[in-house]
Structure formats: C-alpha cells, structure tokens
C-alpha cells in the first residue's frame, strides 16, 4: 500500500549517487601512505573534492575547504529531503557552537570570527539574542540554557559552564525534537551519542581528578546509561568500568577503548571506536530504500570523511608517522 515513506524515493536515489562519491578505503589508505600534505591533496584532487581544492592556494587553508564542503552537503541533503526539519537537527550543533562563541566573546569583550555559518539560525540573530538577553527565538531547551548562562556566568565566571550547559541543552533539544518528529532512528542516534560522550566524560573527569559532584554536572541526559550507574565509577578503578559495561551494548567498545586508555594513557582509541560505533549504528539504516536513514547516514559519513581528511592533513603537515595516523582513522561508512 502506498505509505508515507515513499516520499523519500527521490532523496534516497540521489543520496545513493552521492554515497558513491565518498572516499573509499583504498583512497584513504593511499593518503595515509602519502609522503606529504601536498600528496594528500593530490589524492583528493582525483576525488569529489577536486573542485573545492582547485581554489586552494595555501595548503594551510584546507580547513576552510572542509568546512564549506560539510556545509554544502548539509544544505544539499536538506534541500532534497521531503522533511527538512529532520535534517535541520543535524545542523543544530552549529547553532550551539555559535552560541558558545558569541557568549564567550561577549564576556571577554572581544569580537570573534569563529562563527560557523552552517547553523539553522542566522548568526546575527543569535548575536542580537545574546546582546539583548532575549532568547525567545531559540528552541525551548537552548533558550533555557542561555538564560541559565546569563544568570550564572556573571557569578561564577567559569567558561566551562557555558559549554556544558549548551551541550546538555543541545542533546535534550535533539532528543525532544526527534521524539516529536516521531523518528526512532534519530532518537537512537542521539541517545547513543549521549552515552558515548558520557563515557568519555566519566574517564576524563576521573583523569582530571575532579569529584562526583562535578561529574554529575557534566553528564548529559537522554542516554541509555543512567547517570547513577556512571557516577559510581568515579571512585573506582577504570577496570571496573569495563566490567560494569560488559552487559551493555558498549561492552566491546569499552573493553578495547578503555583498556587502551588505561594502558597507554591516550583516549584516541576510544574516540575512534566511539565514532565507529555510531557509524555502525547508522549503517544499519543505510540500505533502507525509503526513509530518512540513508540521508542521515550520508551526512554522518561526510562528517567522518572530513574528520579523516583533517587528521591526514594535520598529520602530514606536522610529519606524524603513518602509524599514528592510521590508528586514528575512522572506519568509512560505505
């Protein structure tokens, strides 16, 4: 029977063609083996990035190219999606980034050029909202967070509060909207992201030597792992966290990533595995022929791809050994 989901037929068809242009494993591998940043650019010039890179005069400007590529994909997917409000959720974090920048710039009394134009709300509107402390135009959760910041910051003057409040509000808003738009797939995505962030936060707070009270404030709600379950580990060795997670869906990730963190003192493995975990989750929806899943999957894939290119560029410019780059390269979506 004709159902609602076939409205995605065009968008999914188009996304399939776009997916094909994502970098393949073999191309990533060639870039890892490249001897310099110039060689990385050379490999990229044979890919979908050729046009964008043609204007690149200074190799150190690659960040701008990546940012604009990401933004282009976001806009394209939004324009072909029959429900752009779902895709807009994927851009909400740029609004949050912009809010953080605007707040910090305001309290420092400086002008900042760190605004990213990819958000859903125009930056000047955010700017005037912060200037006039009138956040009525913002989504509900973000508005509350902004009000908390304008009240709390002048007292505490702790910039971390700005970030933590806005990050929490971001995910609350995302989960709330995904639920409102009746999209279990995206709800699942955001909940998993929250869990992974919380796991990393737990280990990081522990490493910083801060206490349970601080952790409680820093954790984001909306994940599958309850906060009470996480906070108990602050006073226990990290090994017990691995056992504690062994019954959850994150058991493998914890066993490998947290073990690596304990042994080598670096979170790089866990961070890579966390991204791969999300990729794995999104891959499950990749072949759904009708529905928003392939679109979201594509956007995530693009994000991961850009992360990989950034890693390659920064790595090659600074002459990091290929091995150090390879172990941080995220799995590709295709």
């Amino acid at each position: 029977m004709p159902s609602d989901d076939t409205i995605y037929a065009y968008a999914v068809g188009r996304t399939r063609a776009l997916e094909k242009r994502l970098l393949e494993k073999s191309q990533i591998e060639r870039m890892i083996e490249a001897s310099s940043a110039e060689d990385v650019i050379k490999v990229l010039s044979e890919s979908d990035y050729a046009n964008a890179l043609a204007d690149l005069t200074d190799i150190y400007d690659f960040e701008k190219v990546l940012q604009s590529e990401l933004q282009k994909s976001l806009e394209l997917i939004k324009s072909i999606s029959p429900k752009p409000e779902l895709i807009a959720l994927m851009a909400l974090r740029y609004d949050v980034h912009n809010l953080k920048v605007i707040f910090k710039a305001k309290y420092l009394g400086i002008k900042s050029d760190l605004i990213v134009p990819a958000g859903t709300i125009a930056a000047p509107r955010l700017q005037s909202a912060v200037d006039e402390e009138d956040f009525r135009d913002l989504p509900d959760r973000l508005r509350k967070a902004c009000e908390m910041i304008t009240e709390g910051f002048p007292v505490s003057r702790d910039p971390q509060l700005i970030d933590i409040n806005l990050d929490q509000a971001l995910f609350e808003q995302l989960l709330h909207d995904a639920k409102r738009l009746n999209n279990a797939y995206m709800e699942g995505l955001f909940s998993r992201q929250v869990d992974l962030i919380n796991l990393k936060t737990l280990v990081r707070v522990k490493r910083m030597g801060l206490d349970r009270e601080f952790l409680k404030k820093a954790l984001i709600s909306g994940g599958f792992l309850a906060h009470d379950r996480l906070t108990v580990f602050i006073d226990e060795p990290l090994e017990s966290l691995i056992t504690g997670l062994s019954m959850s869906q994150y058991s493998e990730l914890a066993a490998e990533g947290i073990r690596d963190w304990i042994d080598k003192g670096t979170a790089s493995r866990l961070e890579k595995l966390a991204d791969d975990y999300i990729t794995g989750y999104l891959k499950k929806g990749k072949w759904s022929p009708f529905g928003v899943e392939p679109l979201i999957g594509y956007l995530w894939a693009k994000e991961i791809e850009i992360k990989n290119i950034r890693l390659l560029m920064v790595g090659k410019i600074n002459k990091l050994p290929s091995e150090a780059i390879r172990e941080r390269i995220r799995d590709v979506y295709i």
Binding site: P2, Y10, G13, R14, K20, I80
Partner: peptide, 21 residues
C-alpha cells in the same frame, strides 16, 4: 502507476547526480 512513480522518483534522484544512469 504507483510502482512506476516510486521508481521514477528514485531514478530521478540518481540521475540528478549521475545522468549516465
């Protein structure tokens, strides 16, 4: 008609990016 319509939409999406198909 519905069937052909669905395929048509999907195909149009693909052909937008890749006219050879």
């Amino acid at each position: 008609a519905i069937g052909v319509g669905i395929v048509g939409q999907s195909a149009a999406g693909l052909v937008t990016e890749d006219p050879d198909k």
